[in-house]
Simulated scan of single mutants.
Amino acid sequence: MNTANIFISAMAISQFIFLAIHFGLQYRNQIGRLVAAFCVCAIAYLVHDSLSHGNSIWVHLTLEVLSALAPFLLWLVAYLLFVDDRRTPVIAILSITLCLVLEVAGELSFSIISWQQPSHLYDRLVSLLPQMILLVFSLHAIGLVARGYKADLLEERRKFRVAFIAGLSVVIAIIVSGNMLDNILSDGLPGSGDLYDILVSICLFSVILFFNLLSIQASKGANQLLALKPATSSSQDTVDQAPERRDQDARYVAMIEKAMSEEKLYEEPGLTLADLARHVGIMEYKARRIINQSMQYKNFNQFLNSYRINAACELIKTTHHPVSRIAMDVGYSSLSVFNRAFKDLMKQTPSEYRKAHQ
Rank of each mutant, 00 (worst) to 15 (best):
residue 241 Q to S: 13
residue 209 L to I: 02
residue 189 L to K: 08
residue 211 F to C: 00
residue 237 D to E: 15
residue 200 V to H: 00
residue 200 V to F: 00
residue 193 G to H: 09
residue 259 A to W: 06
residue 192 S to K: 03
residue 222 A to R: 11
residue 226 L to E: 02
residue 199 L to N: 03
residue 193 G to I: 04
residue 250 A to I: 08
residue 183 N to H: 10
residue 199 L to D: 01
residue 198 I to D: 01
residue 241 Q to D: 11
residue 207 V to A: 09
residue 212 N to Y: 00
residue 200 V to W: 00
residue 235 S to C: 05
residue 180 M to C: 05
residue 209 L to E: 02
residue 192 S to P: 00
residue 191 G to I: 00
residue 226 L to K: 04
residue 245 R to I: 14
residue 193 G to A: 11
residue 182 D to Y: 03
residue 183 N to S: 07
residue 181 L to T: 05
residue 215 S to V: 08
residue 193 G to M: 07
residue 184 I to R: 03
residue 258 K to L: 09
residue 220 K to P: 02
residue 223 N to D: 13
residue 185 L to A: 04
residue 222 A to C: 07
residue 185 L to M: 09
residue 253 V to I: 12
residue 229 K to H: 12
residue 251 R to H: 15
residue 250 A to G: 12
residue 214 L to W: 11
residue 224 Q to V: 02
residue 229 K to W: 01
residue 211 F to R: 08
residue 202 I to Q: 09
residue 257 E to G: 04
residue 216 I to N: 08
residue 185 L to F: 12
residue 242 A to V: 12
residue 229 K to P: 02
residue 216 I to T: 08
residue 210 F to Y: 08
residue 217 Q to W: 11
residue 223 N to Y: 04
residue 245 R to F: 12
residue 201 S to K: 03
residue 256 I to S: 10
residue 229 K to Q: 14
residue 185 L to R: 07
residue 192 S to W: 07
residue 225 L to V: 08
residue 238 T to C: 14
residue 252 Y to E: 12
residue 190 P to I: 01
residue 194 D to W: 03
residue 250 A to K: 15
residue 185 L to T: 02
residue 215 S to W: 05
residue 225 L to Q: 06
residue 221 G to A: 06
residue 257 E to M: 09
residue 217 Q to V: 10
residue 191 G to Q: 00
residue 258 K to N: 13
residue 259 A to I: 03
residue 204 L to H: 07
residue 238 T to Y: 15
residue 216 I to R: 13
residue 256 I to R: 08
residue 184 I to D: 03
residue 178 G to N: 00
residue 248 Q to K: 15
residue 236 Q to I: 11
residue 200 V to C: 03
residue 192 S to V: 04
residue 213 L to T: 02
residue 189 L to P: 04
residue 198 I to T: 08
residue 224 Q to W: 04
residue 242 A to T: 12
residue 245 R to H: 13
residue 229 K to D: 11
residue 206 S to W: 06
residue 218 A to Y: 09
residue 191 G to C: 01
residue 227 A to T: 03
residue 198 I to G: 05
residue 219 S to A: 00
residue 230 P to H: 10
residue 181 L to E: 02
residue 194 D to H: 06
residue 205 F to G: 05
residue 257 E to N: 10
residue 205 F to K: 06
residue 224 Q to L: 08
residue 246 R to P: 13
residue 230 P to Y: 05
residue 228 L to G: 06
residue 222 A to E: 14
residue 199 L to S: 09
residue 257 E to H: 10
residue 229 K to F: 02
residue 184 I to Q: 02
residue 260 M to S: 09
residue 231 A to G: 15
residue 228 L to A: 13
residue 219 S to Q: 01
residue 196 Y to S: 07
residue 182 D to H: 07
residue 248 Q to I: 08
residue 237 D to Y: 14
residue 226 L to A: 00
residue 235 S to L: 13
residue 256 I to T: 03
residue 224 Q to M: 12
residue 219 S to K: 01
residue 240 D to R: 15
residue 227 A to N: 11
residue 243 P to M: 11
residue 251 R to F: 07
residue 259 A to E: 09
residue 258 K to H: 14
residue 228 L to I: 06
residue 243 P to S: 10
residue 254 A to H: 05
residue 183 N to I: 01
